[in-house]
């Protein structure tokens, strides 16, 4: 009896699935899904290597400071960094006075409940980076976690920053020309063509447009590519400030576990020694 009921239930689900499969297959044959501009022309991030990538790698503080400079002078005009406090900057090599000076350069909104007015005051090391009011088109995301919030992480950010291209005559690696295959995919006014962006058109104009846009003080040549990598490294740090400590702890933990597991294995073999088959 159970057998008959179970076979009937199984047949019910199988038939419903076959019906779905048949309908799906029929429409797949009748109208094969059309290729989209995004599927053919969206680029995976370029291969960048950062000093913090490998299991032993740590942040390059010099690079993080350069990246912070790029953030402050370029990105901060539109993008906030609200998860990060000024005091956190000590972790990338600034001393107390420098942190105070950085904080002072930002204005923190203060609401005065007595008068109802909103004023501003100079930032303090304990403040977080203030919100950025943006009146233009689009919605600039907060950058605190951006490298963890996008597939590809820092390499994606660097690729996006350097990936702006002329749409006219743009070809992918197969030699297909975008506007010939998809004349409708022309980037609308107010948006900018960037094949590293998911739908190819981004509201942000190329923020790092020319070499030496930011003046580096450590002698590094401020090429567009260098600035893009530096700010991406900085944003890796803002997203995961405990990265170095995490890996350092990890090696200590794995070392201990390897030792303890070896001991546990020897204890296991020892205890089972008298029992054949183990």
């Amino acid at each position: 009896m159970i057998r008959i009921i179970s076979i009937l239930v199984g047949a019910f689900f199988s038939l419903a699935l076959l019906w779905s499969f048949g309908n799906g297959a029929a429409s797949f044959i009748k109208e094969p899904p059309a290729a989209t501009a995004e599927a053919l022309f969206h680029q995976h991030p370029k291969h960048y290597s950062f000093s913090s990538d490998s299991a032993f790698g740590t942040f390059d503080k010099q690079q993080l400071q350069r990246g912070f400079k790029v953030y402050k002078e370029v990105c901060a005009a539109c993008h906030a960094l609200k998860q990060v406090a000024f005091r956190d900057l000590k972790a990338i090599g600034y001393n107390d006075d420098e942190v105070k000076a950085v904080a002072k350069g930002f204005q923190i909104p203060v609401y005065n409940p007595a008068t109802g007015e909103v004023n501003t005051r100079d930032g303090l090391p304990t403040d977080h980076f203030p919100p950025v009011v943006y009146a233009g088109q689009g919605n600039p995301p907060d950058l605190s976690l951006i490298t963890k919030a996008r597939h590809g992480g820092a390499a994606y950010v660097a690729s996006l920053l350097t990936g702006y291209a002329e749409q006219e005559g743009y070809k992918n690696e197969k030699g297909q020309e975008l506007l010939k295959l998809f004349p409708d995919a022309k980037t609308p006014d107010g948006l900018y063509f960037n094949p590293y962006f998911a739908n190819l058109n981004i509201a942000m104009p190329a923020p790092i447009a020319s070499d030496d846009q930011v003046t580096y003080t450590d002698g590094t040549k401020a090429t567009v590519d260098q600035m893009a990598q530096d700010v991406s490294a900085f944003l890796t740090w803002t997203a995961e400030p405990k990265l170095d400590k995490r890996k350092q702890t990890g090696w200590a933990v794995l070392g201990f576990l390897l030792f303890a597991t070896t001991l546990a294995y020897m204890a296991y073999r020892n205890i089972w020694a008298g029992k054949k088959g183990h």
């Binding site: 239930v9 199984g10 689900f13 699935l17 076959l18 779905s20 499969f21």
Partner: peptide, 13 residues
Amino acid sequence: QIASIYYFAHFLI
């Protein structure tokens, strides 16, 4: 869809 058919068929049939 095919894999789901096998899943139910496995247990029920």
